[in-house]
């Protein structure tokens, strides 16, 4: 066990150095490929003054995508991204249905049928100083 010949020692050193180079190279590669240049998507949307959304209205905001509900309980927003794999859900008479894998939600975003297993995400809506409603997706 102690008799490591000069040749074997050299070979061991060289091979481990080459392996280390390769490992560092792979590490660098991961960092190279992991770079993100694109800016993060917006998390705040200005959706205009509150009077655009009268009582008992349900307004689809397709660019977010979300639905703004104004009822007796007040203003609230629900994300229209399916909690299963993120497709935008469509309105049905019972509520919403996902066109991709047929998850169903009721009119308030409660899950009715899988494969999704969570309710739709509730989004924060607030009226800011500029007098407009702002919707926050985070």
């Amino acid at each position: 066990m102690k008799h490591l010949s000069r040749r074997d020692f050299l070979k061991l050193c060289t091979n481990s150095l080459l392996a280390l180079t390769g490992a560092l190279g792979v590490g660098g590669l991961i960092r190279y490929l992991g770079y993100q240049f694109d800016p993060p998507p917006p998390s705040e949307f200005d959706i205009g003054p509150a009077m655009n959304y009268p009582l008992n209205s349900r307004t689809i905001l397709a660019h977010i995508p979300a639905i703004l509900i104004h009822d007796k309980k007040g203003l609230r927003a629900i994300s229209l991204a399916c909690t299963h794999l993120g497709c935008t859900i469509e309105q049905r008479n019972f509520g919403f249905e996902c066109p991709c894998h047929s998850s169903r939600y009721d009119i308030n975003g409660k899950i009715l049928k899988g494969p999704a297993n969570r309710d739709l995400q509730k989004l924060r809506v607030a009226e800011l100083e500029d007098g407009n409603l702002h919707l926050f997706t985070n």
Partner: peptide, 25 residues
Amino acid sequence: PKTYIYFSRFLIAAFVIIVLLSTML
């Protein structure tokens, strides 16, 4: 020596993975 080499190689590999994880990631 052969087993010794393999053992050392294993150690080096483990070391390399630690270095990789800690510095490059």
